[in-house]
């Protein structure tokens, strides 16, 4: 069987700046792959081209056998790719519940007349989606937060809410952009468990960007390393840890003055 996500020779340039260059990456159904690299390596940009924020300047991206590069973001979402954002982008003034309900919007039919007349059929559909939203929030331990506006939630819960909203779109592939950023140790440990659990329960394929090496090494059987927009290594955590170029890339970053 071919891979769920296939990235071939993808490049992304911003007016001369090559944020990503000649990237090849395959992710098979059910995999959990870590994407790491120093700051500015181009990791988020990879997510942005996959989800259609930017049209890649080079190469092709296929999802479940279909080309998706250049497709509009909402269409890509409907094909089954969901994501979270490095700098949380919730619908700030809406309640936690509404954020998840919006994730489910694809499952609801737009029935303008039904919603205006509040027909029984429409009412039932609404109830169904509300119920599922509540259940999803409960599953992520956000049940108590549902009525509060999302910007009032503590940071860790906002990150989880973003995951909940992404899951509500019923994705096959989930892209997590630094899900543990800003979390303390206990929260990180909980998140690790959560990712594992969700992956099994929802049959997810996950691509995760994370700066916390210990966490990536512990949960991802396969890791891909980016530096200056290029893939410099790929393999098991053990292989990555011993990879010379990787060590160099990270050392180079840590001691810029040397």
């Amino acid at each position: 069987m071919s891979a769920l996500l296939e990235i071939q020779g993808v490049g992304m340039e911003f007016g001369g700046l090559k944020a990503v260059e000649g990237l090849d990456l395959e992710v098979a159904e059910g995999e959990l792959v870590g994407l790491i690299g120093p700051n500015g390596a181009g990791k988020t940009t990879v997510f942005n081209v996959i989800t259609g924020v930017y049209r890649p300047t080079r190469g092709r991206i296929c999802f479940a056998g279909e080309r998706i590069d250049g497709m509009a973001p909402h269409l890509i979402s409907r094909r089954g790719i969901a994501r979270t954002f490095q700098n949380i982008r919730l619908f700030k003034n809406l309640s936690a519940l509404d954020n998840v309900v919006l994730g489910f919007n694809r499952s609801a039919r737009q029935d303008v007349l039904g919603s205006m007349l509040l027909t029984a059929k429409h009412w039932r559909r609404q109830a169904g989606i509300l119920k599922r939203s509540h259940e999803l929030l409960d599953k992520l331990g956000l049940g108590l937060a549902e009525g509060r506006s999302s910007m009032e939630l503590p940071y860790g819960e906002q990150r989880k809410l973003e995951i909940a909203r992404a899951l509500a779109t019923q994705p096959r592939l989930l892209l997590l952009d630094e899900p543990a950023a800003g979390m303390n140790l206990a929260e990180k440990r909980e998140l690790t468990g959560l990712i594992e659990r969700l992956r099994r329960e929802f049959n997810l394929t996950i691509l995760v960007i994370e700066h916390d090496m210990k966490m990536v090494m512990s949960i991802c059987p396969r890791i891909v390393v980016l530096d200056h927009g290029q893939k410099i290594a790929g393999g098991t955590p053990d292989e990555i840890q011993r990879h010379e170029q990787v060590i160099e890339a990270y050392l180079g970053e840590k001691a810029p003055s040397a």
Binding site: T51, G52, H74, A82, L90, F91, V101, L102, R109, H122
Partner: peptide, 25 residues
């Protein structure tokens, strides 16, 4: 009724963050 229906909340979502709205479909 429209804007408080499940689909209709999309109007609010666009105002809150047009880009995030697109990525949830």
């Amino acid at each position: 009724r429209l804007v408080h229906s499940v689909k209709g909340k999309s109007f609010f979502a666009i105002r809150e963050d047009e880009f995030a709205a697109a990525t949830v479909g």
